[in-house]
């Protein structure tokens, strides 16, 4: 079961340089052919500085930096019993190729709940606040993990 004593714990920052190719790769994997994600000129024509990161791009630094698996391990959560319950983003500014993001993961809460069918679950909320190379806040990601017991 999720370790309640880790509530409020902050983890070492993850650092991720945003590459144009990674933005394109994610858009292609989703099958999103919106030219702003694929073509710099098309993006500039629509008022962007460069190809912006798609709305779910922050999953890339989170997973490639192994941030979420590290938190799951640290909370002694049984990986095989974890469901991704919710994901939410707040965007404060665009993320562009060349940006260097620093994300600070924090366990916001660990709560036990009982489902309608009487099954006990731990609800773990993890938040990562991202800043760019200028120290500006660019986004917040909140993930709800559900560990079935």
């Amino acid at each position: 079961m999720a370790d309640k004593s880790k509530e409020g714990k902050e983890y070492p920052p993850i650092v991720w340089e945003v590459e144009r190719g990674k933005i394109r790769e994610l858009a292609k994997a989703i099958g999103d052919s919106n030219p702003i994600y694929l073509d710099r000129e098309a993006a500039v024509k629509e008022g962007y500085k460069d190809c912006p990161a798609p709305p779910t791009f922050l999953t890339v630094p989170m997973m490639w930096c192994s941030s979420m698996p590290d938190v799951i391990n640290d909370l002694k959560i049984n990986f095989a019993m974890v469901l991704h319950g919710e994901e939410e983003y707040e965007y404060y500014q665009q993320i562009y190729p060349g940006d260097v993001l620093t994300g600070k993961p924090k366990v916001v809460s660990v709560e036990e709940k009982t489902s309608k069918s009487g099954r006990k679950m731990d609800m773990v909320t993890v938040e990562i606040i991202y800043t760019n190379q200028k120290g500006e806040k660019v986004a917040k990601a909140r993930s709800l993990l559900i560990e079935r017991k």
């Binding site: 008022g47 962007y48 912006p52 709305p55 469901l83 919710e86 939410e88 707040e90 965007y91 665009q94």
Partner: peptide
């Protein structure tokens, strides 16, 4: 809605 106007986006799986 153009990407630049998006402020919040959340889902439940």
């Amino acid at each position: 809605i153009p990407r630049k106007y998006l402020k919040k986006f959340g889902v439940r799986f």
